[in-house]
Design a protein around this nucleic acid. Structure first.
Length: 105
DNA sequence: AAACTGACTAATA
DNA sequence: CTATTAGCCAGTT
């Protein structure tokens, strides 16, 4: 029982992200009380256990872009979901974190 | 235990 | 702006 709890913290943070906002991997890790575990956030989302419904698509990298997974369609799907929520992408396919970046209370 | 890998980030060129 | 390098920490082999 260690990695499971760690993932649970990430999920808890991500679940708090409101619609129309996004957070970076490092931000999720920091809010979860685990700074510098940005890569673990990616692991957690990759594993994504069933039964845990979380808005994983609101998690992007520090550049405000969708981290490539190698599998086409997944990242594309994420972009569509965000656009549906009101998150705007610029010509470079990036998000303006200054406006859409979520700031915890 | 050691080496490799990765949905990351920040610093350089 | 993009491309490359290095640092990072945990999971996998």
């Amino acid at each position: 029982m260690s990695s499971t709890d760690t993932y649970a913290r990430f999920y808890q943070v991500i679940r708090q992200v409101p619609q129309g906002y996004v957070v970076t991997y490092g931000q999720v890790a920091e809010l979860a009380g685990l700074p510098r575990r940005s890569r673990l956030v990616g692991y957690a989302l990759r594993q994504m256990p069933d039964g845990v419904n979380i808005p994983w698509w609101r998690v992007v990298n520090s550049q405000g872009r969708i981290s490539p997974r190698g599998l086409d369609g997944c990242d594309e799907y994420q972009r569509i979901l965000l656009e549906e929520e009101g998150v705007a992408f610029n010509d470079a396919g990036r998000i303006d974190l200054k406006r859409f970046g979520w700031i915890a209370d």
